[in-house]
Design a binder for these strands. Sequence first.
DNA 1: CGACCATTTGAGCATCATCAACACTAGTGG
DNA 2: CCACTAGTGTTGATGATGCTCAAATGGTCG
Lengths: 246, 246
Amino acid sequence: MSAPQLQAVQCADCPIRHRAVCAKCNTDELETLDHIKYYRTFEAGQPVIWSGDAMSFVGSVVSGIATLTQTMEDGRTQMVGLLLPSDFVGRPGRDTAAYNVVATTELVMCCFRKKPFEDMMVETPHIAQRLLEMTLDELDAAREWMLVLGRKTAREKIASLLAIIARREASLHKETVKGEMVFDLKLTREAMADYLGLTLETVSRQISALKKDGVIVLQGKRHVTVPDMQRLMEEAGDDSDGGFLV
Amino acid sequence: MSAPQLQAVQCADCPIRHRAVCAKCNTDELETLDHIKYYRTFEAGQPVIWSGDAMSFVGSVVSGIATLTQTMEDGRTQMVGLLLPSDFVGRPGRDTAAYNVVATTELVMCCFRKKPFEDMMVETPHIAQRLLEMTLDELDAAREWMLVLGRKTAREKIASLLAIIARREASLHKETVKGEMVFDLKLTREAMADYLGLTLETVSRQISALKKDGVIVLQGKRHVTVPDMQRLMEEAGDDSDGGFLV
DNA sequence: CGACCATTTGAGCATCATCAACACTAGTGG
DNA sequence: CCACTAGTGTTGATGATGCTCAAATGGTCG
C-alpha cells in the first residue's frame, strides 16, 4: 500500500497541467520543470509537514486531498486551507512551514526543491504570474470563509461548506451548478468541524437537520445528493446567485 | 474640509515608498509611475467603493485607515481586511469590486487606472514580484484571522486584535514588541465587532474586563496602554513568542 | 466475535447575542 | 447659552445557540 504510480509522468500529460502553478508554462518551460520535479505520495492520515519544520520543497497536489491547519497549545484547531488537486503548497522565500499539512485521503504531490524552484521563478515570469493569480484566488476564498466563520449560524455554515464542495466538484467536471448535484464528502465530521469552527457534534446534528428538512439526501454517511442547489444556497445565506469566485 | 494636500508628491519622497507595491521599483520605474498615478482623498466614513461596482482603478493607501467588508442581505457584516498605509486595494484583472471599501479615518490613496497599471505589471516584474509578496502576506494574515474567528473566545479575540494592532504599530515605527506599548484604537467598537465576529456590546464588555484585570489601561475610550505585551499575548492564546509574521 | 473508529443522539450548561436603558460628547440651531 | 439630536460607548437582564460530557449505534477489520 505504499508509493503507487511513482513512474515519471510527463508534464504534458499531467492531469493538473492546466490549473496548477505550471498552467501558463510553454513547452520549453515544461521540459525544465520535468527535470527538477519529483513525486511523493502520502497515505490517508499521514502528515506532509508540520508547522515550524524546515520546508525544503514546494509543490502541487496532483491527486487526493490535504488539509492546512493551525493549532493552539490547548489543542483547539482551525482548518485554514483545503488543498485539492492543482493547489499549491509552500511559500517561495520561506524556509519553515507555517501550517500543518495533513493528507486526508491518499495523496500524490508533484514537488520541487525550493532553491531550484525559486531560481526558476526569477527566470520564468509565467510561473510567478500564475502563482500570483492562484494566491489572489486563495485570498478571495479565505475572505469568503471569514464571513462563514464570523457571521453564519451552524446550519448556514454546514450549508455553505456543502455548497463550496459542490461548486468545486462542478468546476472540476465543468458542470453547471444548478438543479441536482451528487458528490462524496471526503472529510470526516471532525474535519468539517475544524473547517467551520464548530464541534463535531454540532456538525452531525446540523447535517441530520438538513437531511430531515430535505435539503440534502444521504446514502451512507458520506455520499450526498443535493436535490436543489438553489435551495442549498438559500440555506447557506448566500444571495441568490452571487459569490461564484471559483 | 475637502481634498487636502493633493499636490503631487514625488514617488521618491513618498512615505510608503519602501513598503507599498512600488517598493522594488528602481528610479526609472518610479518615474513612469509618477506619470500615471493620481491621489484621491476620502473623509472619515466615506465609501471608497461598493461591492459589485465597476472598479476602474487600483491603488495604495498612503495615509489613514480603510476597511474591507462583506455583508449578507440581512445586514450581518464581516470585516475581511483592515487597510493601513502601504496596503494595496483592488485586484489586477478584475473589473468589479468584490468587497466594500470604506474610509475609517480621513484617507489618502495613491491610485492608478487599472489598464495602465496592468500594462505596466507585464513590463515591470518588480511590481508583480512585490504584489505577490504582499498577497502572500495578506493570505497569512487572513489565515491567522481565521483561527481567531473560528476558535477563540470573545476575550481572546479582543486580546488578539489589540496584539495585532500593537504589532503593526511597532513594525511601522520599527520598535520592539516587548514590554510596554501605547497606541490609539482607530476603530469604533462596532468596527472591532465586525472584525472579530462579535457584537459591539460584547466588545465593550470584554474591553472593560481586560481593563479591570489590568491587562490594558485606557485614557479615554480609544487611547490604549499595554503595560506588558507578554501578558496580552498570553490572553490572546498565542504561544509565548510565535506568530510574528508582520 | 471483539476492538476500534466514525457518527449519532441526549441532557445540561456557558457563552455570547439580543433587547433595552442610560451616559457622555460634539455639533446644530433657536 | 441652552435645548435638541446624533453618534458612540457602557451596563444590565434574559434567553438562544452551540459546547461539553456522556452513552449508544453501526460499520470495518483482524
